[in-house]
Design a protein around this nucleic acid. Structure first.
Lengths: 203, 203
DNA sequence: GATCGGTTTAACCAAATGGTTAATTCATAT
DNA sequence: ATATGAATTAACCATTTGGTTAAACCGATC
């Protein structure tokens, strides 16, 4: 197939990632991965001792593909406005390239929430600090907000939800036309920040 | 257990609903359901011929627990403002009572998107009509919007995402304290409409 | 109290599951 | 060429999977 010059180990990881993301942990069997990778099932256990181990490695990688941006952008020295635009731009791009991430992560995280703690620390982001920082920025601009966390959840929700609910929304509102919906998602790079910033500025 | 005076058939449905919602289709075995219902596995097949059939019946019910509100609220004769408030109120209530719905529906829908079409029609909602109606209302109020569908996706995302991403957000931003997060979700009944309406009114 | 229909169960089935073991292939260094 | 160690496979294992079959149970009707 597209085995290129990847080491077998890397190739497995790549294939397993696809299969796991498409079918979830429970919906994936070691045999499926072996078949799609064109190898013997035992080889999976040779490189990654168990299904769980293989999955964890993949999940951690997927997680680190989008979470760190959060910290980078919001701990940066950009203005609030710049941060919001940067965030929407970054996240929508990432998910356009990896559309399965949102559902996959939510799905698995909801089954195994304990696992999350280590991943967050590993990603080197400190939510408390982030919240404090944005809180300070808002105060500096004379904007009052009951709870800054609404700001974050709003931003996250507006960017991520359209990907997670894609099957539903694309069908209901876009005649199931992929291109149309992709375009719609791109529009949101501006739509979302405008909505968020507009609401913050006035009151 | 809490078998009360439910017919066995209803009891099974109730237990199966819980198990399926918690573990997803793939993560659930007929044996699990039978055990949790305190019955023999064969009895499941007696009432519902297969796992698939049992699941479909449940999924349809779950789906119809929140989707019809969409149509009812937005096809009503309320003002736009009232509709937005009504929507947030309704949906946040429904999901506070059934927190697993969002992830469950997204998860299964992403694996089996074709199944969706019939469900939407069954629910008696016509997205195209809804969009047209809100479009008209906005126009009447002299508000211009590139694409009204952003309005819907925004509203849906702001209300639903906090439930779907609960494991992540509650841990990252709320020290994993359930009550605090529940309270936060309640606040959003006003927070979300304010955000949406504020952005629409001014420009 | 026999019988009848619906309900519930035990026993069973082939296939698939995650995982192990031991043998084989294969490239490389000697 | 041969010995060596890693890479790869075939064969196997116990358990679980969704599903079937036939028998047992059980309350009502005759």
């Amino acid at each position: 197939m597209a085995g290129q010059k990847l080491s077998t180990e890397e190739h497995i990881l790549q294939v397993a990632r696809e299969v796991f993301m498409q079918n979830g942990y429970d919906g994936t069997s070691m045999q499926m991965i072996a078949d799609r990778a064109g190898i013997n099932k035992s080889l999976l256990h040779y490189y990654y001792r168990s299904k769980e181990r293989l999955f964890r490695e993949i999940f951690a990688k997927v997680f680190s593909q989008f979470i760190p941006h959060l910290g980078v952008i919001f701990m940066s020295e950009m203005s609030l406005e710049e941060k919001v635009y940067a965030f929407a731009d970054r996240y929508i791009d990432v998910f356009l390239e990896n559309p399965l991430i949102p559902i996959f992560v939510m799905q698995e995280l909801s089954k195994n929430p304990d696992y999350l703690a280590e991943l967050i620390k590993e990603a080197g982001i400190n939510p408390g600090l982030m919240i404090a920082k944005i809180s300070q920025m808002l105060e500096d601009e004379g904007i009052y907000m009951k709870d800054v966390r609404h700001f974050f959840v709003n931003l996250l929700g507006l960017c991520i939800f359209p990907f997670a609910a894609r099957p539903l929304i694309q069908r209901m509102m876009f005649d199931n036309e992929k291109e149309a919906y992709d375009n719609f998602l791109l529009e949101r790079k501006k739509e979302v920040p405008q909505l968020i910033l507009n609401a913050i500025r006035k009151r």
